[in-house]
Design a protein around this nucleic acid. Structure first.
Lengths: 83, 83
DNA sequence: ATGTGACTTATAGTCCGTG
DNA sequence: ACACGGACTATAAGTCACA
Protein backbone atom coordinates (compact mmCIF):
# COMPACT_ATOMS: atom_id res chain seq x y z
CA UNK A 1 0.00 0.00 0.00
CA UNK A 2 1.25 3.46 -0.96
CA UNK A 3 1.25 5.93 1.89
CA UNK A 4 -0.88 8.99 1.20
CA UNK A 5 0.67 12.42 0.96
CA UNK A 6 -1.19 13.49 4.08
CA UNK A 7 0.18 10.57 6.08
CA UNK A 8 3.73 11.31 4.99
CA UNK A 9 3.50 14.99 5.89
CA UNK A 10 1.95 14.31 9.27
CA UNK A 11 4.67 11.81 10.05
CA UNK A 12 7.26 14.44 9.17
CA UNK A 13 5.49 17.01 11.33
CA UNK A 14 5.57 14.66 14.28
CA UNK A 15 9.26 13.95 13.79
CA UNK A 16 10.18 17.62 13.55
CA UNK A 17 8.17 18.54 16.62
CA UNK A 18 9.64 15.64 18.52
CA UNK A 19 13.20 16.70 17.77
CA UNK A 20 12.50 20.38 18.34
CA UNK A 21 10.88 20.00 21.73
CA UNK A 22 13.60 17.54 22.75
CA UNK A 23 16.03 20.40 22.25
CA UNK A 24 13.79 22.86 24.10
CA UNK A 25 13.56 25.11 21.07
CA UNK A 26 10.63 27.31 20.06
CA UNK A 27 9.42 27.25 16.46
CA UNK A 28 10.83 30.73 16.15
CA UNK A 29 14.25 29.66 17.35
CA UNK A 30 14.29 26.69 15.00
CA UNK A 31 13.23 28.95 12.19
CA UNK A 32 16.15 31.20 12.93
CA UNK A 33 18.65 28.36 13.09
CA UNK A 34 17.29 26.75 9.94
CA UNK A 35 16.85 30.01 8.04
CA UNK A 36 13.20 29.28 7.52
CA UNK A 37 10.16 31.34 8.31
CA UNK A 38 8.49 30.82 11.69
CA UNK A 39 5.12 30.22 10.04
CA UNK A 40 6.67 27.70 7.71
CA UNK A 41 7.95 25.62 10.62
CA UNK A 42 4.46 25.76 12.05
CA UNK A 43 3.03 24.48 8.78
CA UNK A 44 5.51 21.64 8.59
CA UNK A 45 4.70 20.50 12.11
CA UNK A 46 0.98 20.61 11.36
CA UNK A 47 1.51 18.45 8.30
CA UNK A 48 0.28 20.94 5.73
CA UNK A 49 3.67 21.64 4.11
CA UNK A 50 5.62 19.41 1.77
CA UNK A 51 9.23 20.62 2.06
CA UNK A 52 11.78 20.25 -0.70
CA UNK A 53 14.98 18.31 -0.06
CA UNK A 54 16.90 21.53 0.48
CA UNK A 55 14.34 22.70 3.03
CA UNK A 56 14.61 19.33 4.79
CA UNK A 57 18.37 19.72 4.95
CA UNK A 58 17.93 23.21 6.42
CA UNK A 59 15.52 21.84 8.99
CA UNK A 60 17.83 18.99 9.97
CA UNK A 61 20.67 21.46 10.16
CA UNK A 62 18.70 23.65 12.53
CA UNK A 63 18.03 20.60 14.66
CA UNK A 64 21.70 19.65 14.66
CA UNK A 65 21.16 16.31 12.92
CA UNK A 66 21.43 14.87 9.42
CA UNK A 67 18.48 14.70 7.09
CA UNK A 68 18.65 10.91 7.22
CA UNK A 69 18.42 11.06 11.02
CA UNK A 70 15.49 13.45 10.83
CA UNK A 71 13.56 11.15 8.52
CA UNK A 72 14.52 7.93 10.27
CA UNK A 73 11.43 5.94 11.12
CA UNK A 74 9.12 8.03 8.96
CA UNK A 75 7.58 5.13 7.05
CA UNK A 76 7.18 3.24 10.28
CA UNK A 77 5.05 6.03 11.74
CA UNK A 78 2.42 5.52 9.11
CA UNK A 79 -0.50 3.42 10.23
CA UNK A 80 -0.73 0.12 8.44
CA UNK A 81 -4.30 -1.21 8.79
CA UNK A 82 -3.47 -4.82 7.97
CA UNK A 83 -0.15 -6.22 6.87
CA UNK B 1 29.50 26.25 6.35
CA UNK B 2 26.05 25.81 4.82
CA UNK B 3 25.98 23.41 1.91
CA UNK B 4 24.78 25.04 -1.30
CA UNK B 5 21.57 23.94 -2.95
CA UNK B 6 23.56 22.68 -5.93
CA UNK B 7 25.75 20.51 -3.74
CA UNK B 8 22.76 18.98 -1.98
CA UNK B 9 20.97 18.16 -5.23
CA UNK B 10 24.06 16.67 -6.83
CA UNK B 11 24.63 14.52 -3.77
CA UNK B 12 21.04 13.28 -4.01
CA UNK B 13 21.49 12.57 -7.71
CA UNK B 14 24.55 10.49 -6.99
CA UNK B 15 22.76 8.54 -4.29
CA UNK B 16 19.75 7.79 -6.48
CA UNK B 17 21.89 6.69 -9.39
CA UNK B 18 24.01 4.58 -7.10
CA UNK B 19 21.00 2.74 -5.69
CA UNK B 20 19.32 2.40 -9.07
CA UNK B 21 22.30 0.91 -10.88
CA UNK B 22 22.98 -1.35 -7.94
CA UNK B 23 19.55 -2.85 -8.60
CA UNK B 24 20.19 -3.05 -12.32
CA UNK B 25 17.23 -0.79 -13.07
CA UNK B 26 16.86 1.65 -15.94
CA UNK B 27 15.54 5.15 -15.27
CA UNK B 28 12.42 4.08 -17.09
CA UNK B 29 11.92 1.06 -14.84
CA UNK B 30 12.50 3.11 -11.72
CA UNK B 31 10.07 5.69 -13.02
CA UNK B 32 7.47 3.00 -13.38
CA UNK B 33 8.06 1.58 -9.91
CA UNK B 34 8.07 5.02 -8.32
CA UNK B 35 5.18 6.39 -10.33
CA UNK B 36 7.32 9.21 -11.61
CA UNK B 37 8.11 10.28 -15.15
CA UNK B 38 11.31 8.91 -16.66
CA UNK B 39 12.56 12.45 -17.41
CA UNK B 40 11.90 13.47 -13.84
CA UNK B 41 14.18 10.70 -12.60
CA UNK B 42 16.77 11.88 -15.08
CA UNK B 43 16.54 15.41 -13.71
CA UNK B 44 16.92 14.21 -10.14
CA UNK B 45 20.02 12.20 -11.01
CA UNK B 46 21.52 15.17 -12.81
CA UNK B 47 20.95 17.38 -9.79
CA UNK B 48 18.61 19.85 -11.46
CA UNK B 49 15.48 18.87 -9.53
CA UNK B 50 14.78 19.61 -5.90
CA UNK B 51 12.21 16.96 -4.94
CA UNK B 52 9.66 17.40 -2.21
CA UNK B 53 9.46 14.96 0.67
CA UNK B 54 6.61 13.11 -1.00
CA UNK B 55 8.60 12.75 -4.22
CA UNK B 56 11.55 11.47 -2.19
CA UNK B 57 9.35 8.88 -0.54
CA UNK B 58 8.12 7.77 -3.98
CA UNK B 59 11.70 7.46 -5.15
CA UNK B 60 12.78 5.48 -2.11
CA UNK B 61 9.74 3.30 -2.55
CA UNK B 62 10.70 2.55 -6.13
CA UNK B 63 14.17 1.62 -4.93
CA UNK B 64 12.77 -0.63 -2.24
CA UNK B 65 14.29 1.32 0.64
CA UNK B 66 13.20 3.93 3.18
CA UNK B 67 13.67 7.63 2.58
CA UNK B 68 16.11 7.71 5.50
CA UNK B 69 18.16 4.98 3.85
CA UNK B 70 18.11 6.80 0.53
CA UNK B 71 19.41 10.00 2.10
CA UNK B 72 21.90 8.32 4.40
CA UNK B 73 25.32 9.82 3.94
CA UNK B 74 24.07 12.77 1.92
CA UNK B 75 25.77 15.45 4.00
CA UNK B 76 28.96 13.42 4.01
CA UNK B 77 29.06 13.45 0.22
CA UNK B 78 29.43 17.20 0.17
CA UNK B 79 32.98 18.38 -0.24
CA UNK B 80 34.32 20.08 2.84
CA UNK B 81 37.30 22.25 1.86
CA UNK B 82 38.82 22.44 5.35
CA UNK B 83 37.42 21.02 8.52
C1' DA C 1 17.96 4.29 -22.55
C1' DT C 2 19.10 8.91 -21.44
C1' DG C 3 19.81 14.14 -21.62
C1' DT C 4 17.77 18.25 -22.38
C1' DG C 5 14.72 22.57 -23.12
C1' DA C 6 10.41 24.16 -22.90
C1' DC C 7 6.19 24.58 -21.01
C1' DT C 8 1.69 25.01 -17.67
C1' DT C 9 -0.26 24.25 -13.27
C1' DA C 10 0.44 23.43 -8.48
C1' DT C 11 2.63 24.49 -4.50
C1' DA C 12 6.90 25.92 -1.77
C1' DG C 13 8.35 29.42 1.03
C1' DT C 14 8.02 34.51 2.70
C1' DC C 15 5.85 38.28 4.88
C1' DC C 16 2.07 40.70 6.73
C1' DG C 17 -1.19 40.16 10.22
C1' DT C 18 -5.03 38.15 13.97
C1' DG C 19 -6.62 35.69 18.37
C1' DA D 1 4.78 30.85 21.94
C1' DC D 2 1.75 29.00 18.65
C1' DA D 3 -2.31 28.26 15.16
C1' DC D 4 -4.09 30.14 11.43
C1' DG D 5 -5.19 33.16 7.36
C1' DG D 6 -4.34 36.20 3.02
C1' DA D 7 -1.40 37.64 -0.45
C1' DC D 8 2.56 37.38 -2.81
C1' DT D 9 6.96 35.55 -5.66
C1' DA D 10 9.90 31.72 -6.59
C1' DT D 11 10.18 27.27 -7.75
C1' DA D 12 8.57 22.23 -7.81
C1' DA D 13 5.48 18.96 -10.28
C1' DG D 14 4.52 16.81 -14.18
C1' DT D 15 4.71 16.12 -19.08
C1' DC D 16 6.35 16.59 -24.05
C1' DA D 17 9.13 16.39 -28.34
C1' DC D 18 13.57 15.72 -29.94
C1' DA D 19 18.65 14.66 -30.25
Amino acid sequence: MEPSKKQILQALGNLVRQHRTMLGLSQEELGFRANLDRTYISGVERGIRNPSLTALVSLANGLGITVSELLDGLEGMIAKPNE
